[in-house]
């Protein structure tokens, strides 16, 4: 290091060669890292991602296909398996639209208006993300279960919520509750409201402004929020496990079915079902990257 301060390059025949060497060795930009640091950071972070992310994913598919394609496909002839897939789709089909409508309403009032208690509302919307899934299931058991607050009344009227579809849907709605709202709100805030106001002054009513101006404007982040919500809805384990009661062919969703199969040492079926959810996760990531790219572009264009 000491030599650098006293650098004096030779003149004459070797000058050009010496200069190129000097440039390569010394002329590092002030904001770029030395090669050893780049190498260390990249090796550590790529190694981490490989061990924690790539290996588990690869393992799911390897185990699923351990006994070949036929064994893999045969898994999906089992009635309990197909039932779990249908149940999962049914739950997602109810929970995701519910939370999408809520997410749009919440984003509309949080992004566009100022009112007392807005901060509190934002915190409450975020809350389900930080509640343990087990607690999320527990609160519904305590509300609707036999020993719960409304339990005796529900029993009298013969309405089953816990250990039945409504309970599964409710707890899924709870854990996936914030996804659409927290993705759409910042986008709506960033894009401003000039276009909506322009549409209104042109005589459009509230609903048509919303459908023709707002929704197209935020469509990419809306799609992103919906697929994230969907991924979580189809994959929720802890909360659903508490309220479902694990009744085969009735209340086992895919993740719960995976647990049952795994605990019965049926590894190929367990990983085969898991591979479907892993594929869904990969698809979610692909759509996520694409939509954030489009959403950022929309934001950049709006800023120009």
């Amino acid at each position: 290091m000491a030599g650098i301060a006293q650098l004096n390059l030779p003149s004459g025949e070797d000058a050009t060669r010496a200069r190129i060497i000097a440039r390569n060795q010394l002329a590092r930009r002030a904001t770029s890292d030395p090669l050893w640091m780049k190498a260390t950071v990249l090796i550590l972070s790529l190694g981490f991602l490989f061990v924690f992310f790539v290996l588990p994913l690869a393992l799911v598919f390897q185990e699923a296909f351990r006994k070949g394609w036929e064994a893999y496909l045969k898994v999906f002839e089992d009635r309990a398996t197909t039932h779990s897939i249908w149940l999962t789709l049914k739950v997602a089909l109810i929970a995701v639209p519910l939370n999408t409508v809520f997410g749009l309403a919440a984003a509309w009032c949080v992004a566009h208006f100022r009112f007392r208690g807005k901060q509190l509302l934002s915190v409450l919307i975020e809350l389900p993300l930080w509640v343990s899934p087990v607690v999320a299931g527990l609160i519904y058991v305590l509300l609707f279960g036999r020993q719960g607050l409304l339990g005796p009344w529900l029993f009298e009227k013969d309405i089953k919520i816990i250990f039945a579809l409504p309970g599964i849907v409710l707890s899924t709605v709870f854990v996936t509750f914030p996804f659409v709202a927290r993705v759409v709100t910042p986008q709506l805030q960033a894009l401003g409201r000039a276009e909506e106001e322009a549409a209104l002054t042109l005589g459009a009513n509230g609903w048509s402004t919303f459908w023709r101006v707002t929704v197209p404007k935020i469509k990419w982040s809306l799609i992103y929020g919906i697929i994230l919500c969907n991924a979580r809805a189809m994959g929720e384990f802890g909360a659903v496990s508490v309220v479902s009661g694990h009744i085969r062919n009735q209340t086992n969703t895919m993740p719960l079915h995976i647990e049952v199969l795994y605990n019965e040492y049926q590894f190929v079926p367990a990983f085969a079902v898991a591979s479907l959810l892993a594929l869904l996760a990969l698809l979610t990531l692909v759509i996520k990257s694409a939509t954030t790219w489009f959403a950022d572009r929309a934001l950049r264009n709006a800023a120009l």
Partner: peptide, 22 residues
């Protein structure tokens, strides 16, 4: 960059059995 979000998208039960087997 996209992979970093995998734990958000991958169901916890799938991650659980994969990590356990690994």
């Amino acid at each position: 960059d996209a992979m970093v979000d995998l734990p958000f998208a991958l169901p916890t039960a799938v991650a659980g059995i994969a990590l356990c087997t690994l």
